[in-house]
Design a binder for these strands. Structure first.
Lengths: 135, 135
DNA sequence: AGGGGTTCCTGGAAAAGTTTTAAATTGTTG
DNA sequence: CAACAATTTAAAACTTTTCCAGGAACCCCT
């Protein structure tokens, strides 16, 4: 099922702005709302920051993208398997690291909590240094 | 080693404001900076919000308390073993759930990343409903 | 295909909520 | 008591949400 279909199936309209946000995130990496807005301003003249935030929230509810909070901001990424978001304290990068979270989820489920989402943020030294914009 | 000693050992001054913040957190639960400020205003007349934030950052760096981000705010808790912070989507409570994170940490360490901190935020239904202030 | 109508979405400005900063004052430690 | 760190107050910064009028997407119909 492609992204357009997934939006329609949920009664959501397929707008150019939503597709533009998806296009940015589908290339991989981690972005704040502001970063997506700055990226899209170049190709989507007139798009507004509130539209970006509206689209992000809608796409997140539709589970087409994920979000997590770190460093005082909300970060968005294209949907993918549960994983660790590793924040490199030396390089400011955010890396995806595949880890198995199924044991953890079932352990919490067994305590009477129905797990709806898991956000794992790890702070660590990854040996690199310097800044990188595309996170 | 008590808290006063731990502050002194790190070259930090023991101020009434820092001790007041520790007193709130040591009773357990999860608080935002604003909630701690509101709590302390009753017993520490004249304390300011920025002092609370300064103290929280200092205490966090000294590893006497933990913090994690969720729901658009930073939440603080007294230091304890790594665990899952479960946000109940039905009751707005935040619960501590003990889970073993050692496998996860060593798995990430083995990929060349030196783990400095783990923040595990889980969203789930815990069957309760209604609001609770002390989280 | 094309048009009409309904519903939902967008854009711009402003507000809200959280956290940080600046500069002067006060407090803690040796 | 001197040296230096921490607190206070106010304002600003930063991210995100809200409001609503105008516009666009979708559905149905021909």
């Amino acid at each position: 099922m492609d992204l357009v279909e997934e939006l329609r199936n949920r009664g959501l309209k397929v707008t150019p702005q939503r597709m533009a946000v998806l296009r940015v995130l589908s290339e991989g990496g981690h972005y704040t709302g502001e970063q997506i807005y700055e990226t899209l301003k170049k190709t989507e003249p007139g798009i507004s920051l509130s539209t970006v935030y509206n689209a992000l929230e809608t796409l997140r509810e539709a589970r087409l993208i994920n979000s997590f909070e770190a460093r005082g901001a909300t970060w968005y990424e294209f949907r993918k398997e549960p994983h660790a978001n590793v924040i490199c304290v030396d390089s400011d990068e955010i890396l995806d690291v595949d880890v198995d979270l199924s044991n953890l989820t079932s352990s919490i489920n067994s305590k009477g909590i129905k797990v709806k989402g898991v956000n794992l943020v790890v702070y660590g030294e990854c040996g690199k240094s310097g800044e990188s914009f595309h996170q």
